[in-house]
């Protein structure tokens, strides 16, 4: 009756390829069952979750880097420390979420090494460079807003350790939402130059955010939905983001760069120009953007220079509590 905790979660029966058990597992998921790290689970379920959660954790780290560039340049001391605290929370989220992936059997060190080597996947929005304080407003409010939409949906995911961590992450994101809106409002009510810097950044971030949710995949064709990781389709999330954030931008007289963007009240949904999906593939799977290459270069350099300290910092005897 006991299962011992190990660095990568409780030891479990790893042979996840029994078809009859798999069918029963899927049936239980459909009925809303939750899965714990020590439970039997099909290999497909384990692998899909690892891939999804690892990408989420990677994105928190890579998402910290563009904003981090502005801690040193923040325009006031108040913004300097609140931005530092916000980026610290992103690193904190990575810390929590890597542990969830670890509880499925993938060591954090492997994920981290892959990320730094440029082999880890992360969200498209974190491949872009930043140019002005307007980017801090856009990342803090609009990009984070997109993340909040998808993260709230994860409160209903089937892997219980992930749900528990997402509860805390989502609670902290409410703070980030306010932090982002506060910066955006200051620019929107500031000097002409400040407004210009905001509008220019919104124009640049529009397509990456449309890309962020992914292309429209039918519910029945999305394996993440079939296996109980996601509960909403990409298009449902994109529509929710537009319904939440576009009215806020328009209300402040901030233009959106898509001329076709309009709310169809009869259909109860947004019309918009289909983003260029080839460009998304190029961003996440093609040659790294200059911004990503440079961030990873510095990350690799720092990592190599600190080989000597990793074991001392983390220790070899890891403990766990998913």
């Amino acid at each position: 009756m006991s299962s011992t905790m190990s660095p990568t979660g409780p030891q479990h029966d790893t042979a996840g390829t029994d078809p009859a058990r798999e069918a029963a597992f899927l049936e239980a998921l459909d009925e809303g069952a939750k899965v714990e790290s020590g439970d039997w689970m099909p290999d497909t379920y384990r692998q899909l979750n690892i891939r999804f959660i690892e990408m989420h954790a990677n994105s928190e780290i890579m998402g910290a880097l563009p904003e981090r560039e502005w801690i040193a340049r923040a325009p006031t001391l108040k913004r300097k420390r609140s931005l530092a605290a916000k980026v610290q929370d992103e690193v904190g989220h990575a810390h929590l979420i890597y542990r969830v992936a670890e509880s499925l059997g993938r060591p954090r060190k492997d994920m981290y090494d892959d990320l730094i080597a440029g082999k880890g996947k992360f969200h498209n929005v974190f491949h872009y460079p930043t140019y002005s304080w307007g980017d801090v407003a856009c990342i803090g409010f609009l990009v984070d807003g997109a993340a909040i939409v998808t993260q709230r949906a994860l409160l209903e995911t089937s892997y219980a350790p992930y749900v528990r961590v997402m509860k805390r992450v989502v609670a902290e994101e409410s703070l980030h939402y306010r932090h982002g809106e506060d910066i955006l409002l200051a620019l929107a009510s500031g000097t002409d130059e400040q407004f210009e810097m905001l509008q220019e950044a919104v124009n640049r971030w529009w397509e990456p955010i449309m890309h962020f949710f992914g292309n429209d995949i039918a519910r029945e064709d999305d394996p993440s939905i079939r296996w109980g990781i996601k509960t909403r389709t990409n298009e449902e999330s994109r529509q929710e983001w537009m319904s939440t954030y576009v009215p806020k931008l328009w209300d402040l007289g901030i233009e959106t760069p898509d001329p076709a963007l309009r709310y169809d009240a009869d259909a109860g949904q947004w019309d918009y120009t289909e983003p260029d999906w080839d460009r998304l593939r190029e961003i996440v799977k093609g040659t790294p953007t200059e911004a990503t290459a440079s961030r990873l270069y510095w990350r690799q350099l720092l990592h190599r220079h600190h080989d000597w300290i990793h074991d001392i910092v983390v220790g070899e005897d890891l403990s766990t509590a998913a």
Binding site: L65, A85, V91, V313
Partner: peptide, 29 residues
Amino acid sequence: ASHWTGVAPSLEEDLAFSTIAQDAINHAD
């Protein structure tokens, strides 16, 4: 100290050092 945020040698230490940076800025303030 804030330069370490996001790039410190471990995630745990990253969080610790960021607090030290924030405190120092706060103390100056």
